[in-house]
Amino acid sequence: MKRSAALADLEARLGHRFADPGLLARALTHGSMSGPHREDNQRLEFLGDRVLGLVMAEALLARDPTAAEGQLAPRYNALVRKEACAEVARQFGIGDALKLGRSERLSGGRRKMALLGDAMEAVIAAVYTDAGFEAARDMILRLWGDRIDRVEEDARDPKTALQEWAQGRGLPPPSYVETGREGPDHQPVFTIEVRLTSGETADAKASSKRQAEQQAASALLSRLERGE
C-alpha cells in the first residue's frame, strides 16, 4: 500500500514507521467504513487490548516490586481502561486520521471516547503485527509517558470517589438512571444521569452503561470539587 501524507504524519507522531502501512490504515478504519474490500479495526482492537494489558502489567510490576495484587489492580485498570486509551489517542491526533462513515462523522465520531479508545488499541496491534512485541511496548511506554508514574492519582474509581464525597456530607449514595439509548442493537450508546439527593446532576454518553456511569460520576465530581 502506498503511504499517504496523513499516514506518514501519524507515523511520525507515533514514533513508528510501518513496513506495511496498510496495517495502520486498517487500524484507523471504523466499522462504519468497512466493506467487501476494506477491513475495519475490530480484530486489531481485540489484539491490541491484550498487548496493552501485558505491557502495563510488566511496567507496574517493574515500577513497584513490593506492591500487592490489590494495589496493582486499580493502577492497571486506570492505565488500560477505554478512557485512558482515548485520552492518549486525542493527544496524538488519532481522531483526525480515523476513517468514518458519514453518520459517524456527522455525529462527532472523531471525538467519541469509545471510537478513540478502540482505534488506539487497534494501532497498538498494528505495530505489534508489523514489528513485534518490543516495538509495540516501546511505543506504548512512550505514548503513555508519565501516566504510569502518576497512576495512583488516576486509579481512584470515579463512582467510589463520588460516593465517598456524598457520604462525607451525610448524603445517601448517588443514583444512576438510564435516560436514553440510541444506535443499533449491536452498537448502542447509553446516556446515564447521576443524581445526588442534594440536587446536583451530570450525564454522560458511552457504549456501555458502566462507562457512561463512570464518566457521569467523574463529570459531577469534577464540578463539585471546583465548587460549581
Rank of each mutant, 00 (worst) to 15 (best):
R3I: 03
A19Y: 03
R111Q: 15
F92I: 15
S198L: 01
S4F: 03
E45D: 14
R43H: 10
I192A: 07
G22D: 13
R226G: 04
T160S: 05
T29I: 00
R105I: 00
A119Y: 10
A78P: 03
Q215G: 09
R195K: 09
G95Q: 11
R142M: 05
R81V: 00
V177E: 15
R181P: 00
R105G: 02
K159C: 11
G145H: 09
E134R: 14
I192L: 12
T197H: 02
R147D: 05
A125V: 09
N41R: 15
D203V: 04
Q214S: 14
R90W: 06
R210S: 12
T129G: 02
D157L: 07
D118N: 13
A8C: 09
A217P: 15
L24S: 11
L7R: 10
E182C: 03
D138F: 01
V123N: 10
A89F: 08
K209S: 04
I140Q: 03
E83V: 12
K205S: 09
R195S: 09
I94D: 07
S32A: 12
A78E: 05
V88H: 01
P172E: 08
R26W: 01
G199W: 06
G15S: 10
E58W: 12
Q211T: 11
A136P: 11
E39F: 04
P188E: 08
D96K: 13
T160Q: 05
M1Q: 07
L143W: 09
M120A: 15
G95K: 10
G48F: 00
H30T: 02
T66P: 00
E134I: 05
E134W: 05
G108E: 14
V88R: 02
I140L: 15
L100R: 12
P74L: 01
V177A: 08
L115E: 04
R13D: 06
R75T: 03
L72T: 08
